[in-house]
Structure formats: structure tokens, C-alpha cells
Write a protein that binds this DNA or RNA. Structure first.
Length: 402
DNA sequence: AAACTTCCTAGCAG
DNA sequence: ACTGCTAGGAAGT
């Protein structure tokens, strides 16, 4: 039996269900019966099986399979979930004053994870032109095929995420293609080779992290983009989640659509030309960069400030609004969002709690569809908070239904 | 420089 | 059964 410990935080700062399987991390397994998430993570330099669960909005519970020193574990979790970042304050002091669209948004416990840099790089190479379901399968395949056995828990074997050395030694383009990586197979192999050659005596992640200390964002991105299969979007994801560069906004098709639709963005010719002059001196970036997308990136950075990447995470989660993840039986499902709302209507009303699921919804509030009856009219004064976990009932759909 | 096309694959609609 | 399309892009032309 696992011994679970509590890790507390300010109410609403973290909801595992909105963070672990929404396309940011790809290796968390959800155990239907236990209501737990598990994965292997490198804690204090060694991969361990970590189990998490949450049924309150002000703490999570954690346990490891096998011994990990308590202090190191808590430090790891604090760093992984970036608990030093206070989202409610950011929301109140940064995003809301700078962007009135945030009046219609809440953080909902969506956070940017501080992940292992090398794993982030490889995972996001897999993500190109791909859906979350398949990315998840690919990341798991990398570990089971080329990683090391870490242990066993609740009927599942766990493996480490392979180092560049292990990928070079154990994988090949052919093997990866057979595993379903498609044209990304050669990117993975080439990236692992380059990493193995460049990192010298450092570990993969130490090498990537070393750039952050003495280089500006533009140069760090440049370095990351020098890996095969890594363009601006993937590099920005590595900056944000792998290197904890909180102001970086990765611009994918969704964010580009939001910029145009909600922020009426359109690139001015003058701005594009200025940007081209700026990039002239950089050897790689100006070849891979899409100037329009890059202008969107800088627009959001300017608008949202030092934690623009986190604001992007909230906006993105609301836009996509679904989670997909692996189950302990090896299947990968798209989950439907399910939540409990604590609704306080008029000021003299007693708050009440009510369960909602996406299926039965009609009205939209905060990007969450809510069924509203005649007796509970949501107004601008309505206070609500979201608790609960994703519904475990699966659909086979891949795609967005909003 | 910018605007194409191609690259794997699974799932789904028509 | 078959085609066409799409899904957190990047590389090649």
C-alpha cells in the first residue's frame, strides 16, 4: 500500500485533471478505479514512479513506489508544478488589467509544468502535425522500448524516458518507424545524435539548461531550433515548459486562430519588414520562422507580460477544452470534461454545489458549458469555483466538439 | 523571401 | 471498401 502525503497550496491554484493530460505532459497514466495519476519522473537524478491524486482544490496527495527522501520529493513537486507561481495574483494584477478578455476567463488550476528539458524536447518533436492521442502513444513507446525498467505498479510496468545516449545506442529510424513515429523517426534519431555529440560531460537536460544562464531568449531558441525537427513552435514549448521561461508564448494553430478571431490581429507589412531586419543576423531562425506567427508571439508577450506563457496556457486550455490521456490498461482515450461548480448567485443566496458535465450543457460561462435553469441565473456577480476530475467515460473521438 | 508540397498515421465523415 | 480530411509543424523546393 502506498503512503500518501499532502501537498497544500492556495485554493484553486492546481487541478491535476486540467494539467496532466491536456497536451503538455504526455506520460501520465490515469487509473480509472483508483482515481490516480502515475508516471515516472527523474527525481534527484533518478527515475521514480510517482503517484498523484486530488479530491480537494487546495492540495494534492502524492506517493512514490519505492523510497524517495521526503524533502527531495517535496522540492521536486514544488518545482514540477511551479508552486512558487501564484496564478490568482497574476490573474488579478497582470492579466485582468492588461486584457479585458480575461474577465471571461479563470485560471481553473491550469498551470505550466516545469518539466525535464530533454524529455520536453523529444516529446514536442513528436507533436508536430500530430494529435495528442498519438503523441501520448509515441512517448510511452519511447520509454518502453528504449528506456530502463523502473518498476511496477497497479498492473503497469514503468520505464524511464531514454537519454540521448540510450536512443543512439538502442533505437534506429527503422525501429521508430515501425513503432509509428512516421517521418518524425529521423528527427528523433538526428536530435539524439546531435545531443550526444554536443553535450560533452553534461547530461542532456543540463546541457539544454546551461544555455539559459548566459543567453537571451532569442539565442536560446536559436540553439534549440538547431536540432532537426525543431521549429519555432517546438522550441518555444521547450523554452516555456522545459526551461521555465515563463514569458514565452508558443504559437500553434489554435493560438494563431485566437489572435485573429478574438484579438483582431493582422500582421502589418511594416512590422514584418522590421522583424526580417532583426532576424537577418541570426543564421537559423530566419529560415524556419514564420513572421506572422512570430508577431503574434510578441504581441501576446507584450500584452500579457512576464508570465505570458502561463496566460497562453489558460487561453489554450479554454479553446481546446478537452483532455486526452493514457489509461492503466494501455488504451488512450479522449476524456470529457466534468466538474462541480460552486455557484453563488445573488449576494444573499447561499452558495450551492452542483455537478455539471459537458454533455448536459447549454450555456457558456468561462469557456465551460453549464446548464442553467430558471432558478439559477448566472450573472456577472456569480462566483464560482471548479473542482472535480475529468469524467472517466471515454469517447473514441479525436477532435474538438465545441 | 514567400508560397507552395511533402512527410507518417489513425480516426472519422461522407 | 474507398476517398478525403484533419490533427499543438517542420523541411524541402
Amino acid at each position: 500500500m502506498l503512503r500518501f502525503q499532502k501537498l497544500s497550496f492556495k485554493r484553486g491554484e492546481l487541478f491535476l485533471s486540467n494539467v496532466l493530460q491536456c497536451g503538455q505532459a504526455f506520460r501520465w497514466i490515469f487509473h480509472e478505479k483508483l482515481g490516480q495519476y502515475s508516471s515516472t519522473l527523474k527525481i534527484d537524478g533518478e527515475f521514480k514512479i510517482l503517484v498523484l491524486k486530488q479530491d480537494q482544490d487546495d492540495h494534492i496527495e502524492y506517493a512514490t513506489v519505492g523510497n524517495v527522501e521526503e524533502r527531495a520529493l517535496r522540492e521536486f513537486l514544488h518545482r514540477y508544478f511551479r508552486l512558487e507561481v501564484d496564478m490568482s495574483t497574476l490573474y488579478r494584477e497582470q492579466w485582468l488589467p492588461r486584457d479585458s478578455r480575461f474577465e471571461q476567463k479563470r485560471p481553473n488550476g491550469v498551470r505550466i509544468l516545469g518539466q525535464d528539458a530533454w524529455e520536453t524536447l523529444v516529446s514536442y518533436i513528436c507533436s508536430s502535425n500530430n494529435n495528442i492521442s498519438r503523441i501520448t502513444k509515441m512517448c510511452h513507446a519511447l520509454c518502453t522500448e528504449f528506456g530502463n525498467s523502473v518498476g511496477h505498479y497497479d498492473g503497469v510496468d514503468y520505464f524511464s524516458f531514454p537519454t540521448s545516449h540510450e536512443i543512439v545506442a538502442r533505437a534506429s529510424e527503422d525501429a521508430l518507424r515501425t513503432l509509428g513515429f512516421g517521418y518524425r523517426a529521423k528527427y528523433i534519431v538526428a536530435t539524439a545524435h546531435k545531443m550526444e555529440k554536443d553535450r560533452l560531460n553534461m547530461s542532456d537536460s543540463e546541457y539544454l539548461e546551461s544555455w539559459k544562464d548566459h543567453l537571451q531568449y532569442e539565442q536560446v531558441r536559436e540553439k534549440i531550433m538547431s536540432f532537426n525537427g525543431v521549429g519555432p513552435k517546438v522550441a518555444d514549448c521547450v523554452c516555456l515548459s522545459g526551461l521555465r521561461m515563463d514569458d514565452v508564448v508558443p504559437v500553434d494553430v489554435h493560438i494563431a486562430r485566437i489572435a485573429q478571431r478574438d484579438y483582431k490581429f493582422s500582421a502589418r507589412k511594416q512590422d514584418i519588414e522590421e522583424l526580417q531586419r532583426e532576424y537577418k543576423s541570426l543564421p537559423i531562425t530566419h529560415k524556419k520562422v514564420n513572421y506572422e506567427l512570430d508577431l503574434i508571439r510578441s504581441m501576446f508577450k507584450q500584452r500579457w507580460g512576464d508570465f505570458a506563457g502561463w496566460a497562453q496556457g489558460i487561453v489554450f486550455a479554454q479553446e481546446v477544452g478537452k483532455t486526452t490521456g493514457a489509461n492503466s490498461d494501455g488504451t488512450t482515450y479522449k476524456r470529457k470534461l466534468e466538474l462541480d461548480l460552486v455557484v453563488k448567485l445573488e449576494k444573499d443566496d447561499v452558495p450551492f454545489k452542483r455537478h455539471y458535465s459537458e454533455v448536459e450543457t447549454v450555456a457558456v460561462s468561462d469557456g465551460i458549458k453549464v446548464e442553467v435553469t430558471h432558478e439559477d441565473v448566472l450573472t456577472e456577480e456569480t462566483e464560482y469555483s471548479v473542482t472535480g476530475r475529468p469524467k472517466r467515460k471515454a469517447t473514441k473521438n479525436v477532435g474538438y466538439e465545441f
